[in-house]
Amino acid sequence: MTGKGDTVRGTREMSMPLAPDWRLLPTAVRAVVIVALTVACVATPGFFSLPNILSLLTTVSFMGCVAVGMTLITISGNIMSFSLGATAGAAAMVFIVAVNIGGIGIGLIAALAVAALVSAAQGFAVGWVRANPIIVSIAAVALIYGTAEIFTRHSSIYFKPGTGIEILRGKLGGVPLEFVVLLCVTAAGQFILYLTRFGRNLYMMGSSFRAAEAAGVKTWRTVTGAYLWAGAFTGLAGVMLAIRYDGANMDYGVGYEYDAIAAVLVGGTLMKGGHGSALRTLAGAMIIAIVQAMLLLRGFRQEWQYLFTGLIVFAVILLHSSGERR
């Protein structure tokens, strides 16, 4: 108690004139990052070519949808879910099977429902008995892959001819449909987080679980809700993957959970919860995608992408900590 009091005094007296104002650091960093990225983009031949922009917008969309979902989980104080990548793969396969049976509408409903339920079930375990989120999601990875194996025996599945899936591969006003979906998902995520009671409850839970409980927040419903939405958004990513690549197998989702949490972190959402937003995550996903696209154009092969993503995550985490400390 007394320790906190010490810091309080300063805000009353305001800081000394010569001391650096740390509150400006995040703003400064943001400005530097934007300027540097812009300069690098301009200096990279072909970056602003239409095919490059289109492919950038398409690739960022898959990861972005998962990342917005992950944001809800991170904000609720449950760090991350390892199972979202597997969920995306499973949703892609369910989508194809259901489209082949009942058409696009049925497919969409089935894929989203399966993804949302698989994720919500984990959320229920995490919220109701407060099981450890990391372990639950790792267990879910094993269960999802195991279950998928029963049905597919490790093979890919494809759309039947004549399902009309091609129309979903189009553009809307020159923008790839996937990116439009990502924007909608981000808007939905932002709406949930800022303008609904559920969203505010997520922040409260993330910043202090016990305080949220004592304030009358229905904690397990809130956690389950966060995972449900995360699953639904991930399901959309899976559906888009299936449409884009005209087929699916469980490997499609591999690694998306890591990309997604990287985007969440790069956007500036804190791992410990109670802080962050969907827009930040969109920005984070865009930064990673832009850097990756630039690397490809500059002749780095794909294998460098992981390395740079890792280094970016390191850099962002370090920046965060230096901005946070007083």
Binding site: K4, R200, S207, R210, A211, G216, G274
Partner: peptide, 18 residues
């Protein structure tokens, strides 16, 4: 600190929490 406040959240959010 751990069962009342939402420490990182704004005073505004804390006041209207319930």
């Amino acid at each position: 600190a751990s069962e009342g406040l939402f420490p990182p959240m704004k005073v505004l959010d804390n006041l209207v929490a319930t």
